[in-house]
């Protein structure tokens, strides 16, 4: 069994009397891509914030590399090698790629002057590592000139520079075209190949199905389904399951599956 980077056990989070999460178990193994699915308000964002240490769970246990951690917060999360890439607001678009990668973590001498040569060499290395190279742009290119998928690449390169073992991608393909989505998938595969783990959050089930090794569906603060990729035959099966948990009155997925097949 592969090593677990992080494990959440029976995590509960309540805001007043409202339960955002009602006992969630989630673990991420080394080198796997976990697809996190769920409707708006299902508890996805609360779960991400707990992983990032921005929100403290009301109860439950957090284990990093198998050891229970007390006093979980943003700093502990970063120490554990967890970096979150938010879809927007992540990059300074008028600045160069290299400046964005080293934002807040500049390579500088003790007087604070930057070692730009070293930063550019390091940026080249990071960009090669995730397959983010092109004849059209260099580390000195301005981020505003890049497409949406390429901007995700900059954010992912930055997370890797910060020694992340687990990168949480919050809706990285929302509002992206097919070509751009494929670019993001390419980066994700490269990151996975380097032995790092990814939690991929998405609205688009097909996107998540294409990239994830394991699917976790959250509904009303609980894990409604957890399945390895090999146990899910197609994206449609996932779609049907998601429809079922959204509209349980229309019948179970087992009943609806043949019905939709008959219609087709």
């Amino acid at each position: 069994m592969a090593e677990k980077i992080i494990e959440l056990r029976d995590i509960k989070k309540s805001y007043g009397s409202v339960y955002a999460l009602g006992g969630v178990n989630l673990s991420v193994e080394k080198g796997e891509v976990v697809g996190l699915l769920g409707d708006n308000g299902a508890g996805k964002s609360t779960l991400i914030k707990i992983l990032a240490g921005a929100v403290r769970p009301t109860s439950g246990e957090i284990l990093v590399h198998g050891r229970a951690v007390t006093g979980w917060n943003a700093a502990r999360s970063r120490e554990a090698g967890i970096e979150t890439v938010f879809q927007d607001r992540a990059l300074a678009v008028q600045q160069s790629i290299v400046r964005n990668i080293f934002m807040g973590n500049e390579i500088a001498n003790r007087f604070g002057f930057l070692d730009v040569e070293k930063e550019i060499a390091e940026a080249h290395r990071l960009m090669r590592e995730i397959g983010f190279t092109s004849k059209v742009f260099s580390p000195k290119s301005i981020v505003g000139q890049l497409s949406g998928g390429e901007r995700q690449g900059v954010a992912i390169a930055r997370a890797i520079y910060k020694q992340a073992d687990l990168i949480i991608l919050d809706e990285p393909t929302t509002a992206l075209s097919l070509t751009e989505t494929n670019k993001v998938f390419h980066f994700v595969r490269q990151v996975k190949a380097s032995g790092r783990s990814i939690v991929f959050i998405g609205h688009n089930i097909h996107h998540v199905y294409d990239i994830a090794d394991r699917f976790v569906v959250i509904d009303r603060g609980k894990v409604a389904m957890e399945a390895d990729r090999k146990d899910v035959k197609s994206a449609d099966e996932l779609v049907r399951f998601m429809e079922h948990i959204a509209h349980p009155e229309r019948g179970t997925p087992d009943h609806s599956a043949p019905a939709s097949k008959g219609a087709a």
Partner: peptide, 16 residues
Amino acid sequence: HRFGVHVHMVGDNPDS
């Protein structure tokens, strides 16, 4: 310099 590039970053995208 760190100060100057931080000035750029804050002016460009303070949230980030």
